[in-house]
């Protein structure tokens, strides 16, 4: 396991991170640094622990009974695995987008306004602005601005995914975790979401799980290759794809297993 030396301003760093589902040791000694305002792709065969790793960073795994985390995850200068960290507050800073867009069965407007309102914003004008700003940021505004009151479930799959991204942005996160955000989408919607992710890089640190090697190559700056709960190889995407250190990495990228 080699830590990337070029990373200087890391915002997230894991230290000997171990994770267990009961007795199943799902993450083994993960030491990774993620650079600020860059996109890092997590790749690896099914079941190797990518989602588990992503979910340790916003403590979503806490909600599963019988799990255990060891080691540290530093975000800024806080170790977020400490019991003193409130996971609810943490999740406002560390946003997450899922594989299947789970829009709420409310209107498009409500899907975005819902978060800020529950977090205390009551001013209708401010909420209007938040909705517009984040729909624009998610490149969805032009498509939906005339029917914000329509049910969000009526949108296409790609639009729904961009809506969930807008919804996540509305809680003003600093870090975005994305778990296979385009794997349920058609190629055109995928291209739109990828464009969006690239523009989001200016403001957010992004970690994205993907099974699509071209996608990882197209959008990410760094790539971590997971295998059986361990990080087998980590480096700049261009290097890792053109010059992998390990034969497993090479075979996986070439589609020989996974």
């Amino acid at each position: 396991m080699n830590v990337v030396e070029t990373i200087e301003r890391s915002v997230i760093q894991t230290e000997n991170l171990q994770f267990y589902y009961g007795t199943h040791h799902a993450l083994k000694n993960i030491n990774l640094k993620f650079e600020e305002k860059k996109i890092t792709a997590l790749i690896g065969p099914s079941g190797c622990g990518k989602s588990t790793f992503l979910r340790t960073m916003n403590r979503m795994n806490d909600l599963i009974p019988g799990v255990r985390t060891e080691g540290a995850i530093w975000i800024g200068n806080e170790n977020i695995t400490e019991p003193s960290i409130d996971p609810v507050e943490l999740r406002k800073k560390v946003g997450m987008v899922f594989q299947h867009a789970s829009v709420f069965p409310f209107s498009i407007y409500e899907n975005i306004a819902y978060g800020p309102r529950t977090h205390g914003e009551r001013n209708k004008k401010v909420l209007d602005e938040i909705v517009e700003e984040n729909l624009r940021a998610a490149a969805l505004w032009d498509e939906v601005k005339d029917h914000l009151d329509h049910p969000a479930t009526g949108l296409s799959g790609g639009q729904q995914q961009r809506l969930t991204i807008a919804r996540t942005l509305a809680t003003k996160p600093e870090i975005l975790l994305m778990d296979e955000p385009t794997s349920a989408l058609d190629p055109i919607s995928t291209a739109k979401v990828e464009d969006l992710i690239r523009t989001l890089k200016e403001r957010y640190t992004i970690i994205i799980v993907t099974h699509n090697m071209q996608q990882a190559a197209r959008i990410s700056d760094f790539t971590a290759f997971f295998l059986n709960g361990e990080v087998k190889e980590y480096g700049q995407t261009a290097t890792l794809f053109s010059n992998p250190l390990f034969s497993e990495t090479k075979d996986y990228i070439a589609g020989k297993f996974g």
Binding site: N58, M60, L63, V88, E89, L90, R91, K92, G95, M96, F98, S102, F104, G115, T118, H119, T164, R167, T168, T171
Partner: peptide
Amino acid sequence: EAGWALGFS
């Protein structure tokens, strides 16, 4: 999960 991920209790 979507609710939790948005920082709701």
